[in-house]
Design a binder for these strands. Sequence first.
DNA 1: CTCGCGCGTTACCGGACTTC
DNA 2: GAAGTCCGGTAACGCGCGAG
Length: 447
Amino acid sequence: MSTIPIEKYKNVKHKLREVLEENEFLISKLWKFRTQLMAVEREREYASRNMSWTISQADQCFFCSNLLHRLKKGTGGGAIGSMDISDSEEEASSATIAPVITSNTNAPTPSTTVTKKEKETRKRKPVTSKTLRIQKYEIDESTGKPVLPLSAGAMTIVSLGDIVYDRPAYHSERYIYPVGFTSVKVYLSMLDKDRSVHYTCEIKDGGDSPKFIVTPEDCPERSVTALSATGAWMPILKAANELRNKTFTSGLSGPDFFGLTNGIVTKVLQELPNARLCKSYVWQEFEFVQARGGGGKRGIKSEDHPSKKTKLAVCSLETQSSTTSIDSGLVHAASTDSMNNVRFDSAPQNFVPSVQPSSVDFEDDDLDAEDERDETDGPAAMANEAIYGGQQTGNHEGPESHHGAHPSQFPPQSGYAHFGGKQPRSAHLESSAHQLHSDQSSNYDST
DNA sequence: CTCGCGCGTTACCGGACTTC
DNA sequence: GAAGTCCGGTAACGCGCGAG
């Protein structure tokens, strides 16, 4: 048994003490930072709420609507900060400021059973400003705009369009109808009762009121144009249901089908330029939540369900799940083992994968895989194909005008791309996804 | 590691309500 | 009365987590 020299022992003890002290110091520092961070976060939340509330108030206030009116006419008298307040104070005082209702305190507390009579007397609730919970989505850091195409649940937003604020029909209390807005939705085919296809929904300038156009992938010649979102979807739902010997009931929400009720879409649209000038529109607030379960979809098998494969990738430090997939970044990692390979469902025509063939094997049987895809991958992959088939051009004319062809007419860019060798799936996907994503965003402009 | 349960989320549907 | 809009209910789905 060897004895430790007392000197050495003292040294070690001293060092240990130092380390412990440092550790304690760091812990206290960390704690301090955490507390500060929490305080800042609370402040930020409070400030953002305050700001939204104030702006909502201002939007509804006559004084401000007058200002907006002037601004629209170009007679606003320069910057807001330099405007003549004294002139407007009188107007402001006489203006009726509608309170922003965050909760209907006068409303009776909801009972679990609503009687027929109650239902009959129940009136439609006024549009109020609410805090909606949405999942995170990709934002281009340089522009602050969302990265398109943007996956929003079962919808994929291809183009956001431009807000028309000076024509009242282009927005309502609930929705904004930007000219050039284009989304892709998967729904039952009108031709093949066993298939779901993707429908391109577009909003175009129709003069006094917007034109709503829905174009089915499998029969573009049967596209429907109407003056309302519901009107555009109605014939399609009728046809699709008739094909399946189902009686179509009038229950259809056009805005739902256009994706306008989706929280992410709502947020993105109200952040567009000139959204604040939409006087009737009731501003909503949003809070980001971590993705949990996916929305269900009746009648579509789980393997085919778009939400399983088009889950929005959130390049966030907080959100790191094993099912990370980048929709707009072309990388999908489905939760099934058969999807272990990273796959390029399709790529935009000008998309050059940063991972070169040395690491990505574009196998010869890609075409076979492509054939399989329709059956095994379901609509999501096809939707991507449509999206990347040439709609990333940045104008708001919709897919047909970009290259003069419907999405389905574009040849698939690539089938499956397999990474060589085995890697831990999550790490592998994360890194690949990030890289691909960053390259993708630099390779083609989103609107 | 696998399985099962609980829970949150969301697409779709049906029907009530509103507008024309 | 028809067409369009909105809302609540429900089923389906997947994540988180604990138990084994």
